Simulated scan of single mutants.
Amino acid sequence: MRRRVHVEEDTGELNIVPYLDVVVNLVMFMLLSMTGLLAFGVLNVSAPKIAEGAVAGEAAEQPKLLLTVAIGRDGFYIAGAGGVLGQDAATPDAQRPPTIAKREGKYDFAGLTDALARIKEKFPKEQTVILSADPGVEYDTLIQTMDACRDRKVPGADGKPTHEKLFPAVSLSLIG
């Protein structure tokens, strides 16, 4: 006796429409929730602008500062239009120590904020700082330097700390 294999003529197809509906809804939900989370981690920075000439009234008031903070392996170098702070502007030398050296192997962000606060007292209208970093500097150090340049905590009238704006317009540059 032989067995005969019966081939069913009506083979049912798998209905994937409900599955696709669920997947599309989940993907849309995840995309919408991610855009809400990503907005909290955004820092507005810009590239340095090239200006053809300064406004005549502004040039008469005060010279342009062009404040630059460079993050090196040994610490922070703070420079303006006249040269590097703490060094002779006529003879810049890469072998000289930084303006704010590392303390115990760590970058001195509080010292950087204090130095920038002293600069802000002399240039109260200046808002821009150009930030440069050595290629070996970690990303977290760059972000903490941005925070140190943007504002500082000062005791308020009620004793609670408030934030004083230093240089909120941060531009990124490359050490070359």
Rank of each mutant, 00 (worst) to 15 (best):
E9F: 15
A90S: 12
C149I: 05
D114I: 14
A89Y: 00
L174F: 08
V5G: 01
A39V: 14
G12R: 15
M146R: 06
G36H: 13
R150Y: 06
L37D: 13
D151L: 00
Q95H: 05
E104M: 11
S173M: 10
Y19I: 09
F76H: 07
E9A: 15
P48R: 14
H6D: 03
V170W: 01
L66W: 15
I50E: 15
N44V: 06
I100G: 00
A39E: 07
M34R: 02
V129P: 03
E52F: 07
V45M: 14
K125H: 10
E8V: 08
S173L: 03
D114C: 06
Y139P: 01
L20E: 10
P135K: 05
G41T: 15
Q95E: 13
R96Q: 15
V5A: 03
L26F: 00
Q95R: 11
L20Q: 11
G72K: 11
T68W: 06
Q144V: 01
E138Y: 10
E104R: 10
V170A: 02
V5P: 01
M28A: 12
G136W: 00
E164T: 13
I143S: 02
A115E: 12
L66A: 14
A117Y: 12
K49N: 10
M28E: 13
G75N: 08
F29E: 06
R150C: 09
A117F: 09
M30G: 00
F167K: 09
T35Y: 07
S173F: 05
L142H: 06
K125V: 09
V23A: 09
P98N: 12
G80E: 08
T113Y: 12
A94Y: 05
L112G: 01
P161F: 09
L65V: 10
I78G: 03
E104H: 04
P63F: 13
T91E: 13
I130C: 01
G82H: 09
M1D: 03
C149D: 02
G136N: 04
Y19P: 02
P168Q: 04
Y19Q: 08
M28F: 05
A56R: 08
A89L: 01
Q127I: 09
T35D: 01
L32E: 07
L31S: 02
T145R: 00
R2V: 13
S173Q: 14
A56P: 04
T162W: 01
F109E: 01
N15K: 07
I130K: 04
R4Q: 12
P18H: 04
T128W: 05
S132F: 13
K122T: 10
V22H: 03
P97C: 05
L32R: 11
A117I: 12
G86W: 05
I130M: 08
H163L: 13
F167I: 12
G41L: 15
C149M: 03
Q144Y: 02
A51C: 11
E8P: 04
A89S: 08
R3G: 00
D74V: 05
T99F: 04
T68V: 15
F123E: 02
A47G: 09
D147R: 08
V22F: 01
F109W: 00
P92T: 14
